[in-house]
Design a protein around this nucleic acid. Structure first.
Lengths: 334, 334
DNA sequence: ATGAAAGCGCTAACAA
DNA sequence: TTGTTAGCGCTTTCAT
């Protein structure tokens, strides 16, 4: 059997409570402190977090639910989150739900049963009723990248609308009037915001809105490829295109490559995320980038504040971060 | 307070043990079964896995340690692993150790204190003494992608040597005699195997080994870029290059792009991993691909077998999977 | 098949 | 400051 607090109490001749107090940073006489430390060292004692959790009703564990782990945008955020959380003693239980709302519900249920102390969620849908068990138990939830309609909780978002508006206006300033938009799936928060940014830009520029220049992709590589092809086939007048996430950007580049469409000679191009990929393309892609590291950091810190009682649960915060634009050589002046 | 087994015992008029027995699939009379189910439904009872774990000394949780989560190779494996494990009721605690051996030790310690039932590890170093606590407690460890020198445990590997040997031989058959190799960091298991594959290929082909044609990168994008530049500057005779992991492949492509080196006109090129990236490049990259999904699946299943006692702990298995070669248009005949 | 009771390792309230 | 005691919610003998 493993070494317990009892063993080290016996060894030092002290009481259980004293040892426990030491373990939790309480007041213990220097002399006894040393004794305890020696015993811990000698017996290789390790706190049983499970027993502790049973008593305190806290697991020191955070649940993370994301749509796709092998999506570099998610992975970068999680990396940062996990680092910060573990540094503060919290373990993270990760659930990838494959952009499937049913799987997401299962994950919430799973993590709820595991009694995680809080939840970090990048939702696949835009309803949050499945989060009710957490809300009811007063466990903090921080939303990443997307907002939910029917539930109020903290969120760390990005200025999607502004990012796309600005990007499209760059195309406009370069002389483009027929700009294609590969938008994301209907109903997805970021997709709607980005599409709205596109519309706003055209309106600002006094350009005609052409519905046939908008195609909805599903945020996947295959979807990006198909959308790019569809746009091109249906719009001979199109001279530029904006792709609104990384996977679809990659898909569009693949398709352009396979269709032998010259970028930017035939079509000017603005992609999304992943600077490294943009640099690997010939010519270097112009892209909108999101501050993944900061998104992760802010989300983790927000959750930690709630967890440690530094911020009341009722108070919800909406953090909105700015994006960046990295110029490549895929915008051709006309 | 949450609903406990006690509440549902009271509600049904049955004893604690009966309810517990039901929960664990024991023999309970049909009539009582129905009663219990009704009570569970009505009271929204959820087993407290923590209390259960305290008693059974099992957490139903697996620790996963990887060098870099935002490395698509790792992410794809983890996605598969997590899916399978959660399907069998196991939660996964993920630790990213940033390719840092010290951080890896901390992660092992962290997960050990958390009493995870088993470990899935893609080690950053090649020594395993920090795993001793797990071995001592008879907790299964499955190594992914890399082997450790001083410890015997299950592993799921890939035929790195054969993969690279075959790839290099393709270059040889295309008429290349001065083939550069962007190898991985010294001491890293896969790096050494792949380098050995390169050497074997040259030996098989009866070509001269030129040490200046081998550069060690650090498996990062920046490292790949620097290595590619170095190779090119030091070897005017070089006509082809093989890059031995995905990040470095991307780095090399970026550098070729920025140095305006024409691939394959000036330099024939074989990369590693990530088919999508290969397809996005112009022209499409020829690459070696690894079966990430299968690596994940086999590792998870192996661990599960140990966990559920279907395979004795003393028996260790070494699984070696085959790679694939995907032809692009970056090998030029000479 | 079911129930009573002990106890997993820890924390927290209280007393000393 | 330190020790005693009573559980946290569950599983698991051992009777019945």
């Amino acid at each position: 059997m493993a070494v317990t607090i009892k063993d080290i109490a016996k060894k030092t001749g002290l009481g259980l409570a004293t040892v426990s107090s030491y373990l939790n940073g309480g007041n213990v006489r220097e002399k006894n402190k040393a004794k305890i430390e020696a015993a811990i060292e000698e017996l290789h004692f390790e706190v049983n977090e499970m027993a502790r959790g049973l008593k305190t009703n806290r697991t020191k564990t955070i649940g993370i639910i994301i749509p796709e782990l092998n999506n570099i945008f998610c992975a970068e955020i999680i990396t940062e989150v996990e680092d910060i959380l573990r540094g503060r003693g919290y373990a993270t239980m990760l659930c990838d739900c494959r952009t499937d709302e049913r799987r997401e519900e299962e994950a919430v249920d799973f993590l709820n049963k595991r009694r995680v102390d809080g939840l970090l969620l990048m939702p696949s849908g835009n309803l949050g009723r499945h989060l009710y068990p957490f809300v009811k138990k007063n466990k903090p939830i921080v939303l990443i990248d997307r907002r939910l309609k029917d539930i109020q909780c903290d969120s760390v978002l990005v200025d999607n609308l502004g990012a796309v508006r600005d990007a499209v206006l760059r195309l406009v300033r370069a002389g483009h009037e027929n700009i294609g938009m590969i938008a994301g799936p209907e109903g997805v928060f970021t997709a709607e915001e980005r599409l709205e940014g596109y519309r706003e830009a055209l309106a600002d520029a006094g350009l005609r809105q052409q519905e046939e220049l908008i195609v909805r992709g599903d945020y996947t590589i295959a979807g990006g490829a198909a959308s790019f092809r569809a746009l091109l086939e249906q719009n001979p007048q199109m001279t530029a295109v904006l792709v609104s996430n990384y996977e679809m950007t990659m898909g569009a580049v693949i398709e352009a490559n396979e269709m032998a469409v010259a970028i930017p000679e035939q079509i000017s191009f603005i992609g999304f995320d992943n600077l490294e990929f943009a640099r690997a393309c010939v010519p270097k892609l112009s892209i909108v980038t999101q501050p993944t590291k900061e998104i992760g950091r802010r989300a983790a810190e927000l959750l930690l504040q709630k967890l440690e009682g530094e911020m009341p649960l009722e108070e919800t915060v909406d953090i909105k971060l700015e994006t960046d634009f990295v110029n490549g050589r895929t915008i051709k002046k006309r």
